[in-house]
Nucleic acid binder design. Structure first.
Lengths: 298, 298
DNA sequence: TCTTGTGAAGGCGTTCACAGCC
DNA sequence: GGCTGTGAACGCCTTCACAAGA
C-alpha cells in the first residue's frame, strides 16, 4: 500500500482561495501566443513567435547537437541533423529558420553556435529549479532521475502531504511537508513544478503550487487540472500512452485477421492451429492472446 | 535478421555504428493510416479511419466516463463530458462522431454504452500484457505503478541486462535477463513493451523487443529509435517536457521584464519587495522569483 | 556545386454554426 | 426546446520545390 498516499487525507488541504479558473488544455497548445501581441514591443529579429510544434522539437535538436559536440563534430547539414533528431530535413530547416539564420548555405550549420542559440532560446542559459510534489513511486524515480541535471533542470525540493513520507530522504533531499512549499518556491525562485500525486490529489496539489507562485506544471496524474490563466500545464498520462499503443496493436491484429481470413479462403482446410505460423492470427482467434503481428519483418 | 543484438554489456554498449533502418517519428503521427487503403475491404460502419488526434483523446474520454459510471451518472451531454475531459464540446462531439453515433439528439450520451464502445475501439476488451525493459529507478516505478491494471494494461514481466538487477524482485515480479525476453513475449502474447533504459541502451533493447515480436513500444529513453515498419513507437521524454515548460517560463519572464521596465520608467524607485501580496500574485512580481528571468532577456 | 531559407501547396485538426432529430 | 452530428471555414503544421547564396 505504500504506493497510494492516503487518498484524500492531507492532499485536501488545498484551496487557498479562488476556485481556480478554466481548464487549460495547455498540453495541446500551451501557446496561446499573445493572440495579437505578435508585433508588440520593440521586437528584434525573428518576430517573437515560434510555433509551438517547433518549440516542442527544440529539446530534441538540442540533444542531438549536444551528442555531436561530444563527438567533436564542428558542423552538420540539415539532412544529417535531421536524421540524428529523427525528423525530416525540411521540417528541421523550417524549424531552425524560426530562430533566425544560423546556417550557411552550401555548407550547413555550425554545431556550437547552434547549440548556444537553441539553449538561449529555450532559456537554458540558467538552471531551472524544479520541485516535485507527491513522492510515491513515480516521484521518487523522478527525484532520482539523472538526466534532468545534465539538461538544465535541477530538482530542488520534494514535497508530500503524507506524514509517513515527509522527513524521509530521497535522492539526497529530505521530503518536506506541503506547508513548506511556498517558502521554498520563493526562496529558490522555483517556477516549475512536477506533480506526481495520485489522480485525486492532483488538483489540490496543483492549486498549492500555483498559489506558491509556480507557473509551469508537468503532471503525471490522470486528472484534468484547472489552472488560472498564465499557468502552463503539460500532462503525461502513462496509462493513456499504453492505451493508444493498444489501439494500434489491435488494428494491426485486425488487419492480420482479415489477411489471414483471405488466405483461409484462398487455401482453406488449413487448420488454424497456428503452429509455427505467425501466431499473429490473433484477431482470428476471438481475442485470445492479444497481438502478435508478425509484421515486424525486415 | 536485425534480430541479433550483440551481447551488449550492461546497457552501455550502445553501438553508434550501424545506421539501422528509418527513423520513425511515430510519436507525432504514428498513424500512417493506410495511405489510400481508406475504403479498402468490406468495411463496416464508420470507415476504419479514426484521426490520430482523436485516438489520443479517447483514453481521456474513457477515464472521464469511468468516473461518471462510478458516480452512477446514466447520461451526459457533450458539454458536460467535454468539461470533465478538459476539451471543447465541439471537439468532443466530432471525436465521438468518428466512432459512430452513440448519442441521442436532444438528450446526450448514455454513459455505459459509450464506455463499452470506446473500450472496444481502444481494444480494451482484453487485457494487454506489457513487459518493461530496463529496471532502474523509472522502470521500478512503472512496475509498481498502480493504475495500469485498472486501465487494461497488465505488466507481465521485467527485464534488465544488468546481472546486479536480474533476479531481484520488484512489484512482485522477478527481474529476468534479456535472454528470456523472446520466450516470455511468445508465451504471454505480449505485443507492447516499455523501454526505461538509459539513452545509450535504448536502441539495442528496442531491437531486442522487436526481434521478440513486440510491435508497440513506449520509450522513456532520450534517444531516437530506429524500428522497422509496422512497429509503433511512442516517446516520452521527461527532460524535454521540462525544457518546453522552461521555454514558456522564460517567455513569461521576458514579458515581465519588459513590463517591469515600462513600469520602472513610469514609476521608478519602486522597490519590488512584493510583500504580503497574494502569494498567487505570481505574474505580478517583476522578475523576483520566477527563475531569474530578466537576465536571460533575449 | 551544394545546402540553406522560404514561398506556396497540401493536409490535418479545430472551430463554427446550423440542420436534423429527439 | 435541446442537443447531437456534421458540412464548411479557418488556421496551424508539414511538405514540396526552388531561388538565393556561400
Amino acid at each position: 500500500m505504500s504506493t497510494e498516499h492516503p487518498a484524500e487525507g492531507p492532499w485536501a488541504d488545498d484551496a487557498p482561495g479562488a476556485p481556480a479558473a478554466q481548464v487549460d488544455g495547455a498540453v495541446d497548445r500551451p501557446g496561446r501566443r499573445a493572440p495579437s501581441a505578435a508585433g508588440r514591443g520593440p521586437e528584434r529579429l525573428a518576430a517573437r513567435g515560434i510555433p509551438e510544434a517547433t518549440v516542442a522539437r527544440l529539446p530534441v535538436y538540442l540533444r542531438a547537437l549536444t551528442a555531436l559536440v561530444e563527438r567533436g563534430v564542428p558542423s552538420v547539414s540539415s539532412e544529417e541533423l535531421a536524421v540524428a533528431a529523427g525528423v525530416g530535413s525540411a521540417k528541421l530547416r523550417k524549424d531552425l529558420s524560426h530562430l533566425g539564420s544560423y546556417g550557411v548555405r552550401g555548407v550547413g550549420y555550425e554545431v556550437s553556435p547552434l547549440v548556444a542559440h537553441i539553449s538561449r532560446e529555450l532559456g537554458l542559459t540558467q538552471e531551472w529549479r524544479v520541485v516535485i510534489v507527491g513522492i510515491g513511486n513515480l516521484g521518487r524515480a523522478l527525484a532520482s532521475h539523472g538526466g534532468f541535471a545534465e539538461r538544465g533542470m535541477c530538482v530542488t525540493a520534494l514535497f508530500d502531504n503524507d506524514p509517513a513520507v515527509v522527513g524521509r530522504e530521497v535522492a539526497g533531499l529530505t521530503v518536506l511537508p506541503m506547508t513548506e512549499l511556498a517558502a521554498v518556491v520563493r526562496r529558490d525562485g522555483v517556477s516549475i513544478g512536477v506533480l506526481a500525486t495520485p489522480g485525486p490529489g492532483a488538483q489540490p496539489a496543483c492549486d498549492h503550487l500555483v498559489a506558491a507562485g509556480v507557473t509551469g506544471v508537468l503532471t503525471f496524474a490522470p486528472a484534468v487540472l484547472q489552472v488560472p490563466e498564465g499557468v502552463d500545464v503539460r500532462k503525461v498520462d502513462l496509462a493513456s500512452e499504453l492505451q493508444i499503443l493498444a489501439f494500434h496493436e489491435q488494428r494491426k491484429s485486425a488487419g492480420e485477421a482479415v489477411r489471414a481470413a483471405s488466405l483461409a479462403v484462398a487455401a482453406p482446410a488449413a487448420p488454424a492451429d497456428a503452429a509455427a505460423v505467425p501466431a499473429g492470427a490473433v484477431a482470428a482467434a476471438p481475442g485470445r492472446r492479444a497481438a502478435r503481428p508478425v509484421g515486424v519483418t525486415r
